[in-house]
């Protein structure tokens, strides 16, 4: 705990003591959520009951939504909770109902290649963190350049209080058009793959 306090103090040198404990509390919450996330993810590997895996995946989404709130991303948290924990879970459950309830045991001998891929990829990422700007640094290029620009310009350009909405719908509105088309594509795909008539929702199984 003292280490965390030290860190918090280092991050915000000349702030009153109240501030430091506040930061320490938020760091503690972050660590707690991260631990839970890791526990959830790891237990998903071994579980063969797919219903349970789907539930864990929903829990994972909820936890990450909580983490997003801790990191100030309220819009993302909202969406992740609605989509990841809600819609995705319903979809996966209906998928499981139509496919299989349990996973077959996995062949131990074939774990080598996946492990290799995972370690190389993870290694590359850890390697990159060595030169990475520190977490939460307002001076980091990621936070100081275009991101800060949006915060500065939104009141003048768009005048919408929620900067995320302003960026989403106006500055980067074309991305959002693309996103809408992606959703449309997914709906169309389900229609093409599972529907029995184009204008129907697919009643009664196969074609």
């Amino acid at each position: 705990m003292s280490m965390i306090l030290f860190f918090a103090a280092a991050a915000s040198d000349a702030e009153p003591m109240m501030e430091v404990t506040g930061q320490a509390a938020s760091v503690a919450i972050e660590i707690l959520i991260l631990t839970l996330l890791v526990a959830t993810a790891v237990s998903m590997i071994r579980m063969r009951q797919l219903f349970g895996v789907a539930m864990l995946s929903g829990i994972y989404s909820l936890l990450s939504a909580a983490f997003f709130v801790a990191l100030d991303a309220v819009d993302v948290a909202f969406t992740e909770a609605a989509v990841g924990a809600g819609v995705s879970t319903v979809l996966v459950l209906s998928g499981i109902a139509l496919t299989a309830k349990r996973e077959m045991p996995v062949d131990r001998r074939r774990q080598l290649l996946p492990l290799l891929i995972v370690f190389v990829t993870g290694g590359a990422l850890v390697y990159s963190t060595i030169d990475m700007p520190a977490f939460g640094d307002p001076q980091a290029p990621a936070n100081a350049y275009v991101g800060a620009e949006y915060i500065a310009q939104t009141p003048q350009d768009v005048e919408v209080p929620n900067i995320v909405t302003a960026v989403l719908a106006s500055y980067r509105g074309f991305d959002t058009l693309g996103e809408t088309v992606v959703v449309f594509t997914a709906g169309l795909a389900c229609l093409l793959l599972l529907g029995t008539t184009l204008r129907g929702g697919g009643k009664g199984g196969r074609d």
Partner: peptide, 10 residues
């Protein structure tokens, strides 16, 4: 797009 110049816009 959207009349927003780089780097703010797409």
């Amino acid at each position: 797009l959207g009349g927003w110049a780089s780097p703010l816009g797409i």
